[in-house]
Design a protein around this nucleic acid. Sequence first.
DNA 1: CCGATAGCTGTAAACGTTTCCGGGGAGTCT
DNA 2: AGACTCCCCGGAAACGTTTACAGCTATCGG
Lengths: 367, 367
Amino acid sequence: MGRKRLQEPADGRPTVHTVAARAGVSIASASRVLNGVGGSPETIRKVREAAAEVGYVPNAIARSLQSQRTGLIALAVEDIGNPVYVEMMRAIEAVVASSGRQLLVHATGGRIDNETALLRRLANRYVDGMIVSPIRVTDDHLTALVDSPVPVVVVGQLGADAPIDNVRTDSRHGVALAVDHLVATGRRRIGFVNGPLDTVPGAARDAGFRAALARHGIGLDDELIEVGDFQYAAGRAATERLLARADPDALVCANDLIAVGALHALLVAGRRVPQDVALVGMDDTELARMMFPQLSSVSLGSAERGRRAAELLLQRIADATLPPRREQVPPSLVVRASSAATLPVPRPATGPAGPPTTHPSSEGVTA
Amino acid sequence: MGRKRLQEPADGRPTVHTVAARAGVSIASASRVLNGVGGSPETIRKVREAAAEVGYVPNAIARSLQSQRTGLIALAVEDIGNPVYVEMMRAIEAVVASSGRQLLVHATGGRIDNETALLRRLANRYVDGMIVSPIRVTDDHLTALVDSPVPVVVVGQLGADAPIDNVRTDSRHGVALAVDHLVATGRRRIGFVNGPLDTVPGAARDAGFRAALARHGIGLDDELIEVGDFQYAAGRAATERLLARADPDALVCANDLIAVGALHALLVAGRRVPQDVALVGMDDTELARMMFPQLSSVSLGSAERGRRAAELLLQRIADATLPPRREQVPPSLVVRASSAATLPVPRPATGPAGPPTTHPSSEGVTA
DNA sequence: CCGATAGCTGTAAACGTTTCCGGGGAGTCT
DNA sequence: AGACTCCCCGGAAACGTTTACAGCTATCGG
């Protein structure tokens, strides 16, 4: 026991050296046995015994330093409380797990500095790759993404020329689907409850709403547009403000959380849904089906986007030389009870007094 | 450029060697400058320049191997779609972030093998510590927890003698609060929609329900008890089964997701809530406030439990020799519209037809 | 009976970083 | 002017693992 190396770290935890010494073999042999490659029966026995005796557990950090991979994939989303990200995460999880890796989720809280800090920090080799879904994109962001040391896939809109793997949907078109549906069922005073306009999805949905109204030749009434953020409470408050000054016969909401808030505000205000006001949410999350009446919602294919993003990421990890790719998932409208009734000629109610004409357990109709 | 060491790894990414060579200093000096400790103005300038030119970004894995810490904390929960875990996560996040670390979330999906595998894998030094909230606890689990290489804190019930930091609540007492409240407001045919009995919370709540009924001298009617899992869909289906064979005047649900499913089933069946059936959920998540009528719910202090768990973990990371500690957060009942009306003498309705007598935006009353 | 071969083993390098330590130069105090 | 202090720098070890390489033994074929 000279100046060579401490067999037993101060920490007290056994290393491969500990095991090797105890088994009376070299660390190379010990490592080989522990990895199940090579070793004579006798050596295998001795090493296995020694490892069990000292309770050896390999240090993943050291292993990663050597192998240059961690087997971890990170997903960074703004708000983990939003069910749309839960669905996306589940889809990603499935793909990632099937590749033998593990998924880690990080919530950025939409704080932009937090997000870039995360990028710089987590991406510094702690993970083999990451999927991010930013709702605001700054130049800082873009450069951080572009020269990330690990592969990155972005879910959501991104500058057209950014050389980054990207899975997006067309939320402008999504809003258009909702407006078309409402106009087709006789609604004309269509309100819109949006999230912040300085976010990418907020801006896109605003543009989509205005374009859709114009296409139908419906004049834009700013009284019918409200902005909060993408949360339940803000959606409810925004709808209360809107109802205080205008009288919509339909509401489009920028996501399902907002739509649930709007539903609550409408019911409190004594409006019947859908008879007095039709309601359409967006993202088509589980939440939409949990409401009474069930909410119509524009599906932006979040699970599908998640799945594709994960596949893109795995491909890029396998081959870093691939050209940047961009995939698009089309939106679709799922009609449920909250927008089922037609105006201005409401059908005679089929049930006693209960709201929806469609049985809530029935599946929605995809338009 | 002898046999010494490649300055530039095949990977192409610059290392501290690259920077040092380019700046014409030793790697020790380069490292010092990059860490902001020491260095003459001239050296600092040269190293900073060189680092910027080659786009140096430190390898966190290597740093961690040296420093024996990663700055990452993991949270493992069963179902990230359950809002109760979202609230817990937010509380943990706050504590963890204030210590300069980052939180990673992992969803185990309740698959027991997955969970122990996670424990063994993630805990092998990829993180500085972890918080787990298992809903099933096996012996395998316990041993994995006990000899985890990194500090672990468990949120939830655990064997009494397990030497593991532990934050729990008394969900038996929580169920009792709900039953007491319902009995006090005149309900007698109280049903119970629970999650799986082979889970720790499921078993505790079942025991609590039976004990509470017995204490009130109410005979147990097995027709009034249903079991599904802790999800919305199962809660709704279980409630439908229950309503098909019994006629409760109140329902206690083992968590808020189940309660939302129950509410949906009740409304579809034409029952008024709370006039015909009072409804009490559990966990007091945001979801309870999002419903119409808003749901009464037993708060199990999930945010508080998360906060305390995080604090325990940080303390243990700082001092591994602390004795195992156990903290308990008391449950409390928050009464909202879904159980506000009193039976058997319902108050005259105050509103036109709308359900709740309490304005939904009013805060619940903590019992 | 000898040479080739296969399989096992140990030495040592490597992954990229931080940090201990000793040497040297400049500045200060006596 | 000499001694002492302080600061900066570079060499090298260390973190714990995997793995290329070379040497050894034993087996097998001719």
